[in-house]
């Protein structure tokens, strides 16, 4: 697979939390190439099953969320659209951003406010709060009213681009970079033997509070789970103590959210295959799907791989394509070696 091409398709698809149908179609197309069964559940999770050779039918769940942060129409005023946020939006990035309003048909728009000329010097230094911003789709009031309703979703319109080396930038890499890693893992597995049943899940509504993971983990009732998400990459203004390094491989997380033996197995395999990896210590809630999955039903031994990412929750998230590929490769080898768990 061409990692960038898959990532680009995933990244550019709309799929704000709660309305993932745009991106879930792309996910389904990619998963379909490798899985035996494919379904979508009541919350919109896309679940692919790639059957193992057995003999027992033990299940491993791989979870990466496909939803992205975005906006929603809250009120229409004189043809301008007021909005609320879906997920953790940084108010600083909103002004001047290009968006798509998902009305009766997709409408391109921009996020606008008073022009700088009319601002006081103090106002110019302050971030404009979201209740003073609106989306302008450039249409007359009557047309806006006919096409747009309260509750319509608004997604960012950002192109996914290649930067120098193996770096790429775009929106919604959180967490579609990990969905790409899942596709990469499935592709490897199609050439490998594995005993366990693999449930590849592109989860929904992570940004609304891990909601897709809660129900999909319950439905699958896995014996093991690995969540894949993005982690804070080294970038401007962040110290080494709080980041992982972009281009140095996935981070294997350690902390109460993660099963020690599962983590150690992942580390061992990475070392054996010389796949670069890093360590990320997470002392409490990981804020990822892993947090929900670990306490599903009677408890699920869970691990987390983090792909280093810069500028999280902006339309210019940036990462290394190699880190995605390494994550997929590590997952595939882990699964193909999986027999008993915990290992004796």
């Amino acid at each position: 697979m061409n990692t960038f091409e898959v990532l680009k398709k995933l990244s550019e698809a709309p799929g704000v939390a709660g309305n993932e149908s745009g991106v879930s179609q792309i996910v389904a197309e990619e998963f379909k190439k490798y899985v035996d069964e494919l379904r979508t559940d009541a919350l919109g999770n896309v679940i692919g099953l790639k059957k193992g050779t057995g003999p027992s039918s033990r299940r491993i769940m791989l979870a990466a969320h496909m939803d992205e942060i975005g906006l929603m129409v809250s009120e229409i005023e004189k043809g301008f659209i007021r909005f609320t946020t879906v997920g953790g939006i940084d108010d600083r990035i909103l002004l001047g951003q290009e968006v798509i309003v998902h009305g009766l048909k997709p409408l391109p728009g921009i996020i606008a406010s008073k022009p700088p000329h009319l601002l006081s010097p103090e106002e110019r230094k302050k971030v404009t709060p979201k209740d003073q911003l609106f989306v302008d789709v450039g249409l007359p009031e009557e047309e806006v009213k006919a096409l747009v309703r309260v509750g319509d979703f608004i997604s960012f319109a950002a192109k996914c681009v290649r930067l120098q080396g193996d770096m790429a930038s775009g929106k919604a890499f959180d967490d579609r970079a990990s969905v790409a890693a899942l596709v990469c893992c499935l592709e490897h597995l199609s050439q490998m033997k594995h005993r366990w049943d693999v449930y590849a899940v592109a989860t929904s509504q992570e940004e609304m509070g891990l909601r897709g993971a809660v129900v999909s983990a319950y439905g699958i009732a896995p014996d093991l789970a690995i969540a894949i998400d993005v982690g804070f990459g080294d970038s401007l203004g962040l110290s080494d103590a709080e980041t992982i390094k972009v281009g140095k491989g996935p981070a294997i997380a350690i902390g109460p959210n993660f099963h020690p033996a599962l983590r150690e197995t992942l580390v061992k395999i990475a070392q054996e295959l010389e796949i670069p990896y890093q360590t990320e210590a997470i002392p409490g809630p990981s804020g990822t799907d892993a947090w929900a999955i670990q306490v599903s039903r009677e408890g699920v031994p869970t691990a987390l791989l983090s792909i280093p990412l810069r500028y999280m929750h902006t339309p210019v998230e940036t990462l290394s394509l190699k880190d995605i590929e390494r994550t997929g490769l590590l997952l595939a080898h882990f699964i193909s070696r999986l027999e008993k768990f915990p290992p004796e």
Partner: peptide
């Protein structure tokens, strides 16, 4: 009828939705 987008607060529906395998 009206369409509602509420900034704060929630209802029992938030819990019902997450029950078992998920409920519309």
């Amino acid at each position: 009828y009206q369409l509602e987008v509420l900034e704060g607060g929630t209802t029992d529906a938030a819990a019902i939705q997450l029950t078992r395998e998920g409920i519309p």
